[in-house]
């Protein structure tokens, strides 16, 4: 009787979860199908569940809007010497659709933020966990306090700081605060606590220097933490819309999220174009997510358990 009942419950629960899952995928489905619908079908009061006629027009529109140079190489630090504070450009790429440049900007931003965060956090987390030095407690307290506060409140002062550093409206202005956010150090420290002191001692006795001890003894043991942190940082920086919104302004420096938001502001009723933009923005990151799905879930859980 009870087993029958619980079997029935299981089936009902499965069906319910399935329905919910379908509802959750619906927005994504609507983006993808919407991006291939004709103008007429989109602006109809009875929506079509499936495009009756597939068109690439929306993507053509997306690629036809807001041109930007594919790349720009400028003299490093030249913004500090020119009168208007802009860097001197020595080489500019061919004009390409804004969306392409935005995608490249976003990839560069997320990858650079990820690598820098992992590198600095791995070093600092290890030092905080395994080195005994004066001021350690103070630094760690600062880190914990900073972490408990909402990140967004520092954005307003950051704008001023970035303008005076002449970094405003550059991708670096988005990257540096992400790298500075102390969550990574905290996470790696929790991992590094698990390194037995004896191993480090042994490496030292064998004559290994500090750097060698770190790369050969400590790093392999904090590697899972670094992996989790990499995933975390990548996704978070990709989706950190607020920071991007206030730091970046000119068309060529936008990220893909910002670019789509800007298009939406300028063509608010052209849903076909906006859906094409949304699909263009979402598909790459979703693909990355699906490929690394296992690591994602692991990373999220580890971040929570250790954090």
């Amino acid at each position: 009787m009870t087993t029958k009942k619980s079997a029935l419950y299981k089936i009902i629960a499965f069906v319910l979860v399935l329905i919910l899952a379908l509802l959750f995928t619906f927005p994504l489905y609507w983006i993808l199908t919407g991006s291939f619908k004709t103008q007429k079908e989109i602006n109809s009061t009875s929506p079509a569940w499936w495009p009756s006629e597939w068109t690439m027009k929306n993507y053509e529109n997306l690629m036809g809007k807001m041109k930007a140079p594919l790349w720009e190489v400028s003299v490093p630090f030249s913004q500090y010497f020119t009168e208007d504070g802009t860097a001197t450009v020595v080489s500019a790429g061919p004009q390409v659709p804004g969306a392409i440049r935005w995608m490249l900007n976003t990839i560069w931003m997320a990858v650079a933020a990820m690598l820098l965060t992992c590198l600095t956090s791995a070093l600092a987390g290890y030092a905080l966990a395994k080195k005994r030095f004066i001021g350690r407690t103070l630094i760690f307290t600062l880190i914990v306090c900073a972490m408990a506060l909402p990140k967004q409140v520092i954005l307003i002062p950051l704008i001023r700081e970035m303008s005076s550093l002449k970094l405003y409206n550059t991708i670096s202005a988005v990257i540096y605060p992400i790298v500075g956010w102390p969550f990574g150090v905290f996470l790696i420290k929790q991992f590094a606590e698990g390194i037995p002191g004896e191993i480090i001692e042994a490496a030292r006795i064998d004559g290994a220097g500090e750097v060698k001890t770190f790369t050969t003894v400590a790093y392999p043991m904090i590697k899972p933490g670094v992996g989790a942190l990499a995933i975390f940082t990548f996704i978070n920086s990709w989706n950190d819309y607020f920071m991007q919104l206030i730091m970046l302004s000119s068309t060529k420096n936008l990220t893909i999220s910002l670019g789509i938001a800007k298009m939406q502001a300028e063509n608010s009723t052209d849903y076909g174009l906006i859906m094409a933009g949304a699909a263009f923005a979402a598909v790459p990151i979703i693909t990355v997510f699906l490929i690394f799905q296992k690591y994602f879930t692991k990373g999220i859980t580890m971040g929570a358990v250790k954090g």
Partner: peptide
């Protein structure tokens, strides 16, 4: 999925 899709999309 909605988390990875990104807030703007």
């Amino acid at each position: 999925l909605p988390v990875v899709t990104g807030s703007v999309a």
